[in-house]
Nucleic acid binder design. Structure first.
Length: 485
RNA sequence: CGGGCUGUAGCGCAGUUUGGUAGCGCGCUUCGUUCGGGACGAAGAGGUCGGAGGUUCAAAUCCUCUCAGCCCGACCA
């Protein structure tokens, strides 16, 4: 207060956004780089977010009739090569397993793959599982009665990225991948749109994120898909991030893997398949959308810990205060709130900053003053000290989930305003160029006819732009252009 | 994979030009006073200077190779 406002994170977003992002991850103890190039270690606090994401979304998928299964990590190279566009898309970023045994290096340099143990057919570490699941589907589907078949797996995949960024683009990343098969195009398309709606609901209702639901342009489509639908979100630096996609694969994979069924009238027909996913990059999105110069701000519904209770001890009545805190935690837990007393042997201000950097949505401070009056003092992470409120314990417990909901709603509102303020209407390629030439950040929305402008490629190249998607909100008549992660 | 920058204590850095065998701040440990928005004093612990070769009496420092990270580009969830 007396000093200038000091931020917990250096540099600030304004000063250096990419570095700020790294520092938040470090300060909030979410993840770190590992000895493996391009692969991160997701630490317990970061993994807890992913577990919450899985827990919620998995339930929704099951409600939709999706069954979980597990397919091999290793995929025969021949499988991948079957679908021409698919191979082309992934071939250059596959890790390849060529040997099944190590032996002592004759030059004394530790171990090496044994030349005698070379595989006849190499495997690739799955970059995605369309092919191996397609192969299984071909055997599992016989009749129209077997359709639709809806499968999903939670797993990690590997894409050998040239340039990695923690959470946003790592060689190994975690995701869920759904793979469904339908009788016809209508079924597949409806599936893509339905799952896209589930994603939207997940982002808005759980992650307090909103963006643009739409269709990818032809060149941005998934390799092997007839149509790709995406949900694009905007980070605080104005760059877009593809938060999730659903793909209408048509009969492309059905043809190559022979996924056929007998129709009601005894004929034979190819299945229409889909695939869709979201990944651990969503954690990166949470940071870049919600974080501030003091660190992370967790959306309450995904926060590993929703409420932290800080005992303010002064050497008098400490035990009573601790007991009072424990009771508050118990009462909150009974209401289904993830609350915990921070009983660590640390100074109170240090605990506070730890909670701030980790982004715990609601901080409760309890000392002798509160205990004597049966009250609590609480502060919202998203609003900071200005939101400090003291109220009766009973009242607080009754209204706590309401406070968390209010935090969620306010975060979502802020994200939406930011998105709207940084989405600019344009009419021509010249509008796009003028915008980025001026060094502005955000997305520019122009009529789809601009995609046919022969000068578009040069402008995209000059400013590092790409077509994000064609939003449903504009009936596919407009396209969003901007920088992206 | 191209271009640029960077690897020195848990974190952030100085020292490298002009080789002489390592330092600062924060953090950490102990004690005391403290604790409601980043406390203070005192005493401590902690580094084969990313790795491997080489030059030299001597290498964080010079040379070669290599690994990793960041930024820009191409590619991508």
């Amino acid at each position: 207060m007396s000093q200038k406002a000091k931020t917990a994170i250096t540099p600030t977003r304004e000063e250096n956004f990419p570095e700020w992002y790294q520092q938040v991850i470090k300060a909030a103890d979410l993840a770190e780089n590992s000895p493996v190039r391009g692969s991160m270690i997701i630490k317990p606090y970061g993994w807890a977010i992913w577990e919450n994401m899985q827990g919620i979304f998995d339930g929704w998928l099951k409600d939709y009739g999706v069954q979980n299964a597990s397919f091999p990590l290793l995929i025969p190279v021949s499988f991948l090569s079957k679908e021409a566009e698919h191979v082309e898309g992934f071939a250059k970023e596959c890790a390849v397993v060529t040997h099944h045994r190590l032996e002592a290096d004759p030059d004394g340099n530790g171990l090496r793959p044994a030349p005698a143990a070379e595989l006849e057919e190499p495997y690739v570490v799955r970059p995605t599982s369309e092919t191996i699941i397609g192969d299984a589907m071909a055997r599992w589907i016989q009749s129209y009665r077997d359709l639709p078949l809806k499968l999903n797996q939670w797993c990690s995949v590997m894409r050998w990225e040239m340039r990695t960024r923690i959470f946003l683009r790592t060689s190994e990343f975690f995701w869920h991948e759904g793979h469904n098969a339908f009788e016809d195009h209508e079924g597949a398309k409806a599936d893509c749109l339905h799952v896209l709606d589930l994603y939207e609901k997940f982002f808005t209702d759980v992650l307090a994120i909103d963006g643009f639901k739409g269709i990818k342009t032809e060149e941005e489509r998934f390799p092997g898909a007839n149509e790709t639908y995406s949900f694009e979100v905007m980070m605080q630096d104005g760059k877009a991030l593809q938060a999730s996609t659903t793909h209408d694969l048509g009969t492309n994979f059905a043809k190559t893997f022979d996924i056929k069924y007998q129709t009601k009238d005894g004929g034979e027909a190819l299945c229409h398949t889909t695939s869709w996913a979201f990944t651990t990059r969503m954690i990166g999105a949470l940071i870049m959308m919600h974080g501030d110069d003091d660190g992370m701000i967790m959306p309450p519904r995904i926060a590993p810990q929703q409420v932290v209770i800080l005992p303010v001890l002064k050497g008098e009545n400490d035990e009573a205060i601790m007991a009072y805190c424990a009771d508050i935690a118990t009462q909150l837990k009974k209401k289904g709130i993830r609350a915990k007393v921070d009983a660590r042997d640390m100074r109170t201000p240090d605990k506070m900053w730890d909670a701030i950097k980790k982004g715990i949505p609601l901080r409760v401070e309890v000392g002798g003053r509160e205990m004597d009056e049966a009250q609590v003092t609480h502060v919202r992470r998203d609003l900071g000290r200005e939101s400090k409120t003291t109220e009766a314990l009973e009242e607080f417990v009754a209204g706590a989930s309401g406070i968390l909901d209010a935090i969620h709603d306010d975060m979502l509102t802020r994200v939406r305003s930011f998105r709207d303020e940084n989405t600019h209407e344009g009419q021509t390629l010249a509008d796009i160029e003028a915008f980025f030439k001026a060094g502005k950040t955000g997305l520019v929305k122009v009529p789809v006819s601009v995609l046919d402008d022969p000068g578009l490629e040069a402008v995209k190249k000059a400013y590092g732009l790409s077509a994000r998607n064609m939003p449903f909100a504009d009936n596919g008549q407009a396209v969003l252009i901007g920088k992206a992660y």
